[in-house]
Amino acid sequence: MAQPISLIAHDLGCQRGGRTLFQGLSFALGAGQALLVSGPNGAGKTTLLRLIAGLLPWQAGRLSLEGADEEGALPESCAYVGHLNGIKAAQSVRENLAFTADFLGGGRVGAGRESVESALAAFGLGSLAHLPAGLLSAGQKRKLALSRLVVAPRPIWLLDEPSVSLDASAVKALDAAIGKHLKEGGLAMVASHTPLKVRFAGTLVLGEGRLG
């Protein structure tokens, strides 16, 4: 990380389909901190993460990235892993990752090959690299989606139920990856119903609108 950044939300409010999902939501997340987003189904966890990723508009409040080089760079500082894995079945595992590296890597020379191999190793996909991604099991596809985080490093990780369909060892790899990311000064917001062994700085409970 070039310099420590922090993500600050002030009085954030969002409506979807005429229903207020949350309002008056404020939090601050500094370098090396992770926030657990929790709340019942439909409380707006996914909406909040997609909103930070710049995929949804919000109706009230302010969301800012402090310490970034330029204004409005928030979506480009985020890596989002949502419910959909974003995997091309017709491409091999390695091709899927290589495209992510080339596309999100932003033209860094030499970003490709090396980071693809280390991402494959991070989630134990090395032996599957040549297989068409369409042949992977649900858990393996999830691992491939998560290894995107490693292949194109971005300071803010937004993870929506990252551990769905992962086995025990893959959850351990996920814990390790998040831990390493935080140690390097990254930020993470995780919405998860299953316990993760990550040292969270706090829990954002949606549906009640308070920071616990």
Partner: peptide, 16 residues
């Protein structure tokens, strides 16, 4: 359509 359905569009929208 394919990129929308499998979620790749999110990544494309967040790219450089």
């Amino acid at each position: 359509h394919n990129d929308y359905e499998d979620g790749t569009l999110d990544m494309l929208a967040m790219g450089p």
